[in-house]
Amino acid sequence: MRVLMPDTLEEAYGMLAAEPLTPVAGGTDLLAHWPGNHDARKRAYLDLSGVSGLRFMHWGDEALTLGGLTTYSDVIWDSRVVEEFPLLADAGGQVGSIQIQARGTWAGNIANGSPAADGVPVLMAYDAVVVLGSEEGDQEVLLADFYLGYKKMRLRAHQLIRAIRLPRREYDFQRFVKVGARNAQAITKIGVALTRSEERWRVVVNSMAPTVRRCPALEAMLDEDRPVSGPEDLLTAIREDLAPIDDIRSTAAYREKTLARVLYFDLKGVCPSFA
C-alpha cells in the first residue's frame, strides 16, 4: 500500500496526473472491515486530509459553496445552513452516527458513488454543481448529470471533487425522508429528497436504482399537477424512473410501495392535485 499526502491542491493535482490514485478524505467508507480487505490494501491512495483550504463553507450572493473536505458535522451544526438549506442538515444528521458525521465528507459521499448515499439526494434536489479540479483547471458538472451507472461517474482519474456549489433559491417546499431498518444510523432502504422552487419540482431518490437519481416521470407528474388519488397512482411513474431490487436489506416490492406512500402522504397537503 502507498499513500501520497499532499499539502496543497496543486501538489494533489500533480500527483493525480502522474499515476492512478484513489483519493481519501474522511476514510469512513474505505476503512470499513479494513484488516480483511487485502485487495484495497494493495492500492495507492491520495490522502486529502492535509490539503489546506479544502474545508470551508462560502456564502456568495448566488450560491453556497462547500469545500471538498467539508464534513457533515460542519454543515449540521451551522445555523445558517440549517435555515437556508435545511435538507442538508436533515440528511447529514442521518448519515451514520455523530462519529461518522464528524469524519465523513459531502464530496466523499458523492465520489464513493453508492446508490444508497444519504448525502447525495438532497444535494441533487438543490441542483448542486460538482466542481472537479485538476491541473487542467476546473470543470463543472451538474450533480444530476454526474452518475453514469453503478459506481460510474463523470470523474476522470486526474480529477478531484474540489467543491460543491449550491444555488441559493427560494424554496416553497423541501423535505427529505429516509427509510431504514431502524430509527438511527441504518443504511437506507429508500430515501427521497423533494424540493419545489418557482413551480419546478425536484424528486431525487436513492437506493432504488444503480445510482442516486432524479425522477423525471414523477417530477413531470408534479409539475403538471396531474391528479393523484392514492399511492398506487404513482407506481407507473416510479417504475419508469427507478429499478429497485431485492437485496439483504429489503425487497423491490417494499421499496416501490413505500416510496409511493411516502410521496402520496407527504405531498397530499402540498399538491392540490393529490386527493
Partner: peptide
C-alpha cells in the same frame, strides 16, 4: 422488530452490524 438473519445455504449472509440491526438508543 428488526433483528433478522438472512440465510444462504444455511449460513448468515448479513453477518455485519451494518446489515444485522440491533436497537440503538434512539430506537
Amino acid at each position: 422488530l428488526m433483528e433478522e438473519c438472512v440465510w444462504s445455504d444455511g449460513a448468515m449472509v448479513n453477518n455485519q452490524l451494518t446489515n444485522y440491526m440491533i436497537p440503538t438508543s434512539d430506537d
